[in-house]
């Protein structure tokens, strides 16, 4: 037997996910799982699951987990940490959950500096419900509730989570990354590791926005979706570290 240089993370249960081929939700779960294993905190990790395509993640999380109401994950996580201050919570939320119905919970938890780590899968669309426009949908991008393409005069402009949250004093790490090639995947994992290290060290709130894909509702192949992130999305959502304090 040789040496395993890459194994499946134990954070995921030994079963396939329901995510569409090429969807980045699964990739984000995998990277977080690898980070939690490398940081040695799997035994006190809790997945805080939101409502969206990742809602059924309770079938995949191989650690204690709690499924929240739509938009309320940051509030629920606040309650979990109040009861279990030494637990390590991983909030996985989409743009609908985090920027629309749950915007108050997002900003308020960040404003309080809750010691939690939020992973924001920004794919510019409501996936689970079949492709409706989201707060992050690009101008001109088609969705089932803006079939002619998002018109800013009717539906406003894309909302930028990192820029908003970085204006708050309490958050320690606010960053936006992508997954369309190996360097970016490595960078994403590095930032995730720092974000969860902050939580371990009880430094407070960390927010990692990951530009994500939705091949099915974008009507693109997984490869074209990654290209779309690189060429179109990144222009509207510039990558970078918006805040990084000790």
């Amino acid at each position: 037997m040789g040496e395993m240089i890459y194994k499946r993370t134990d954070f995921l249960k030994a079963r396939p996910t329901h995510y569409c081929p090429g969807c980045t939700h699964g990739l984000e779960h995998k990277l977080v799982g690898e980070v939690l294993e490398e940081l040695g905190v799997i035994d006190r990790s809790i997945m805080v699951i939101s409502v969206g395509c990742s809602a059924p993640a309770y079938d995949y999380a191989n650690v204690d987990n709690i499924a929240c109401l739509h938009g309320r994950a940051p509030a629920t996580a606040t309650g979990v940490k109040a009861a279990l201050p030494d637990s390590i919570v991983y909030l996985h939320q989409g743009d609908g959950d985090l920027l629309s119905i749950g915007l108050d919970e997002t900003i308020s938890a960040a404003g309080r500096g809750e010691n939690i780590t939020v992973v924001f899968a920004n794919n510019n669309i409501y996936g689970m419900t079949g492709g409706q426009m989201a707060a992050t949908t690009l101008i001109g991008q088609k969705a089932t509730t803006c079939p002619a393409g998002r018109d800013p005069h009717l539906d406003g402009y894309p909302m930028k989570a990192c820029e908003m949250i970085a204006t708050l004093t309490a958050p320690k790490l606010v960053a936006r990354t992508a997954l369309y090639d190996i360097p970016h995947i490595i960078q994403t994992k590095k930032i995730l590791k720092k974000a969860f290290q902050n939580q371990i060290d009880k430094k407070g709130y960390s927010f990692v926005e990951i530009l994500s894909t939705c091949p099915t509702n974008w009507h693109m192949s997984p490869q074209a979706s990654m290209e779309h992130v690189k060429n179109e999305m990144e222009e509207v959502y510039p990558l970078g570290i918006f805040k990084d304090e000790d």
Binding site: G79, K81, L84, E105
Partner: peptide, 25 residues
């Protein structure tokens, strides 16, 4: 632990998080 929530919607969901950990909330 006392937390003033941002709304009653947040309050009940914080209670949910603490109660899920078996704590009287």
């Amino acid at each position: 632990v006392f937390k003033q929530a941002e709304s009653e919607v947040a309050s009940v969901n914080m209670v949910y998080g603490a109660g899920a950990a078996g704590v009287r909330a």
